[in-house]
């Protein structure tokens, strides 16, 4: 009996376009939901997670000396052969890189150099805005790598940002953690 009732219900719904009405109600509801758009260069900016693999940076030790010992293991393990290291010996007899160049145009950001490094000198940081009109600009030297931002501490969120191409990107955080982007996606 109830199955027959169900059937008539379905037929009545079909006659009065219940499915189309449902669809209209759904889209109308979505119209007043919050957009998930991240207005990237204009207003908002994505903060990477702390595990994010962005632009490389070289670390210094406590005395301010470069940690790298120019063992060239990173250059050896690099799958796309984009690191070039030339060592030198300073007056105390320590090995350091005279030249440490990474070709960002060829790098695939696998992070193997970070894993291979015995001196914990190189890592992949949080910077991801380094596109350029010339591929020659993407070859980054030792001193630039020392100045790059390190790993993100907080992250995984959207913050208000203003893109300033003259200097670095200014990040103006209203909420320290950023807001949870996924929170705004509706699920039924």
């Amino acid at each position: 009996m109830s199955r027959a009732l169900d059937r008539t219900g379905i037929w009545i719904g079909w006659a009065f376009f219940a499915d189309l009405t449902n669809a209209l109600a759904l889209t109308f509801g979505y119209m007043f939901s919050r957009p998930v758009t991240m207005q990237y260069p204009d207003k908002e900016k994505w903060l990477p997670y702390s595990r994010y693999r962005g632009h490389h940076f070289l670390k210094r030790d406590d005395e301010g000396e470069i940690k790298c010992v120019a063992c060239e293991l990173c250059a050896r393990i690099c799958p796309c052969d984009c690191i070039e290291v030339i060592p030198y010996e300073d007056e105390k007899g320590n090995r350091h890189p005279a030249k440490f160049e990474i070709d960002m145009a060829r790098c695939l950001f696998c992070g193997l150099c970070e894993d291979a490094c015995p001196a914990d000198a190189i890592a992949l940081g949080q910077q991801y805005e380094f596109s350029s009109f010339s591929s020659a600009d993407l070859v980054v030297g030792r001193d630039d790598l020392l100045g790059k931002p390190g790993k993100a501490t907080t992250g995984g969120g959207v913050v208000a940002a203003r893109l300033n191409t003259e200097q670095d990107v200014l990040v103006e955080t209203s909420e320290p953690q950023g807001y949870n982007w996924w929170r705004n996606i509706r699920r039924r």
């Binding site: 979505y30 119209m31 957009p35 998930v36 204009d42 509706r186």
Partner: peptide, 14 residues
């Protein structure tokens, strides 16, 4: 604009 908001986008903004 309506298209954008129905699809949870913003539509033209710039």
């Amino acid at each position: 604009k309506i298209a954008g908001h129905i699809q949870q986008r913003m539509g033209p903004m710039r």
